[in-house]
Write a protein that binds this DNA or RNA. Structure first.
Length: 311
DNA sequence: AACCGACTCAACCGCCTGCCT
DNA sequence: TAGGCAGGCGGTTGAGTCGGT
């Protein structure tokens, strides 16, 4: 036996709301509030609607300060960033966008934004999103912090998609990588090159002041992003690149990269991702050592467009 | 002008969660 | 602790609209 319905479906009206119904609902709630009981609300107002329908109508259409349509580039960016990180948890995404409803964002993503991204970045990125972000594989209790860059590689040598996230509850202390390996010879600014190969993202660090050149290879597998690093002098060591993890329900932890200084560039970078067929980003900045933590201060980036035969 | 497929988005459905008794 | 219930949520639907032929 199924669950009892919340109201008598044979009595309540369904379909689009009339202006009169809207006016009655709006007038009543503005005067009396919801009374913390949506089920009783339509009876008090005197409209033949299901309580859930009243709630939805109020939240998605009638309540004050709602915005409809006209999503800005910044909103696009936030939606994409959060979708990549937490999946289709529209209410959480909506909580980051004042005046937007989860329904609006969901519709906008499904009808426009997803296609926009796919058309710009190619099918591979979409496949990557689908693979990585099956909602059931990510804990609903996960959270996220500031200064995160989620590096998404794909299987076809397309560019990684780097995203930084906004969150009002972010932990401001998260600003740098932490290395298990203690490195005491890092003094001067370095050039960092981010790129990708089959099944892995990689970046080079050229230590001007050091006697060796290090090549750090990150292998962001679906369920484990523990990385390894190797240097030109032949040592291999384990590199912990993240302070932060997202718990997958069944498959262990998923890690992310963190960097400092990226916030200033995120909109510019995002515009490049959205509007151009960017093949590669090269990040430039400063590497510092602090309490045995290797920090990467990103000051600028250069993007390289896709070649014609890659479009 | 008529048709038709694609698109949009308001609204519904049903499951899950958390609160209350 | 268990059961009932309302709220919350994400997926889906379908009527209306748009644009191309």
């Amino acid at each position: 036996m199924g669950r009892a319905p919340c109201c008598d479906k044979t009595v309540v009206k369904k379909g689009p709301w009339s202006p009169e119904e809207d006016a009655m609902l709006k007038f009543y709630i503005e005067k009396h509030g919801t009374g913390n009981n949506w089920i009783q609300l339509p009876h008090k107002i005197g409209i033949k609607r299901c309580g859930k329908s009243c709630r939805l109508r109020w939240l998605n259409y009638l309540r004050p300060n709602l915005k409809h349509g006209g999503f800005t580039n910044e909103e696009d960016y936030i939606i994409c960033s959060l979708y990549i990180t937490i999946g289709s948890r529209w209410s959480i995404i909506a909580s980051q966008l004042p005046g937007r409803t989860d329904n609006d964002i969901k519709n906008y993503w499904n009808t426009r934004l997803k296609k926009k991204l796919i058309s710009k970045q190619g099918k591979a990125i979409h496949q990557q999103l689908s693979l990585r972000l099956e909602p059931e594989t990510i804990s609903k209790r996960s959270s996220f912090g500031q200064n995160q860059i989620l590096m998404i590689h794909d299987e076809n040598s397309k560019p990684p998609l780097n995203q930084t996230l906004h969150n009002q509850k972010a932990d401001p202390s998260i600003t740098s990588f932490a290395m298990e390996e203690k490195r005491m010879d890092v003094k001067d600014p370095v050039l960092e090159l981010f790129s990708w190969e089959q099944n892995r993202v990689w970046f080079d660090i050229d230590h001007n002041a050091a006697s060796s050149s290090y090549h750090h290879h990150a292998s962001p597998h679906l369920n484990s992003m523990t990385t390894t690093t190797s240097s030109s002098i032949g040592t291999n060591s384990s590199l912990q690149m993240s302070h932060y993890t997202i718990n997958n329900n069944d498959q262990g932890d998923q890690e992310m990269f963190f960097m400092a200084g990226f916030d200033n560039l995120q909109n510019e970078l995002f515009d490049e991702i959205i509007n151009n067929n960017t093949a590669e980003f090269e990040f430039r900045g400063t590497e510092t050592l602090d309490n045995n933590c290797l920090g990467h201060e990103i000051n600028s980036f250069v993007d390289y467009p896709l070649k014609d035969n890659e479009r």
